[in-house]
Design a binder for these strands. Structure first.
Lengths: 247, 247
DNA sequence: ATTCCCACTGAATAGCCATTCATTCATTGA
DNA sequence: TCAATGAATGAATGGCTATTCAGTGGGAAT
């Protein structure tokens, strides 16, 4: 269907194009077995892949994308160099799968947060903002990886596709919530798309601040800024955050 | 005073540490002359440096930081490989000076915009927002370079220093304007720092959107979103932007 | 206990790229 | 016109890194 074009210096080796290396279970052998071993010398493929993706996140977060090599990731994971090409075919694939891992995590977290918010869009927005600044999503390591890829996404079709899918889903969600809240809450003078796009941009910008200037921006403060934005836009559904601690 | 620590793979060669290669005029020869030649085989050093920095911006914007090599920058500039080490000593220095060039440009533009805004902070904020989304500051190439460096800034002391200086100056400016406006405009219920930090984050996030999703975010729309934010925060000094074209 | 399979290893390979430097030649001053 | 100067060139160098692959040994099956 779509022929994968990898636009980089090194080549993707042998093995036919196998777009999307699914993280859990993708044992290509004809006779599958292997009852999910623990942590010995050999492990189930999906465990190794997860282990390597997590090592990649720590590595990129700790030394940057430019200094992340096959060797540093392998060392971080406590394994040998060869293991990465064994499980991911190429460094590029490892990075792609790492990005996909984060994108999937974000997407499912935001879907969870806003499930059943059809009837109460304000609650959905609140849940989304809370999710956005939760430690499990918005921590140093993950933000670092996120923005490391962001800088390169325009030049790698695969990065671009993964990021665009996440962005579009997120924007769609926020716009729908704002549109519904405008209708249900009778905010006739509010442009829902304007507010929604501003909210998305604001959270992106706060993420950036949290990453690059952790000494002057804390998660709590980012949350308060976002809540103040919502309170200004939808005053009958959100109140200005006081100085009290959150939650 | 501060010993420069360059934290990268390749080494900075010979020549004593000469922090900050000033862009205009820094001819180290004892007998300076050279009456600013045009564009022949030899040019004045400051012209060549500017030429190379501009080539770097185009190169990073066009192919990403990871694919930007000495060879590609030199080709983009229409010069030979050796020229970069001749004028900048190392690739790292070239990148550093490129970042500094953008940071200086941004800083002087924002100083210009807000000069004489002591008496009228609202006008200062307005001018700052206008400046922020002007084509000369906020165009594809420059945004691309800006965010390419942003992903690496945590790991390179020099990048970090340049970016932090710009960020701090910018935040200081916005906070001062907001604080003054609160006082002069008698917004007793507004937390100026909260509004200011939100404004900074919002414009950063909009820049990001302009870069990575140009099909769904235009400069005009980014400007309107920002003005709506200001109108919500300071309703007696800014009005909600209508659908009319700007300016 | 023995055999076999295959996950894993890590040294070797090949290619890329920043940096060097001997050479070329445009420009300037005499 | 003729040296002298030094800006610019680009081939050569060396270091780094992704990828390969022949071998190793852990563990399952019998």
């Amino acid at each position: 269907m779509r022929a994968e074009q990898v636009n980089i210096a090194f080549q993707v080796p042998r093995q036919g194009v196998n777009e999307r290396l699914a993280l859990p279970d993708s044992v290509p052998q004809s006779r599958r077995r292997r009852p999910a071993r623990k942590q010995g010398r050999t492990a189930a493929p999906e465990e190794r892949r997860a282990q390597l993706i997590e090592a990649t996140i720590r590595c990129v977060a700790g030394r940057g994308l430019a200094e992340t090599t096959i060797a540093t990731v392998a060392r971080e994971a406590g394994l040998s160099q060869g293991i990465i090409n064994l499980h991911f075919q190429s460094k590029e694939r490892l990075l792609t799968e790492t990005l996909r891992y984060l994108a999937d995590e974000y997407r499912s977290a935001s879907n969870n947060a806003t499930a059943n918010s059809q009837a109460d869009p304000a609650a959905g927005l609140q849940a989304l903002v809370d999710m956005c600044f939760q430690r499990s999503i918005c921590n140093r390591d993950k933000l670092a990886v996120w923005f490391a890829f962001w800088g390169e996404r325009r030049f790698r079709p695969t990065y671009r596709r993964i990021c665009a899918a996440r962005d579009n889903a997120h924007d769609e969600l926020v716009r729908t919530l704002c549109t519904n809240l405008c209708k249900l809450g009778e905010y006739s003078d509010v442009e829902p798309v304007l507010v929604a796009d501003g909210l998305s941009a604001l959270t992106d910008g706060l993420w950036l601040d949290l990453l690059v200037r952790p000494e002057s921006m804390k998660r709590e403060q980012a949350w308060r800024i976002t809540m103040a934005y919502l309170a200004d836009a939808f005053p009958r559904h959100f109140q200005q955050p006081g100085l009290r601690a959150r939650e």
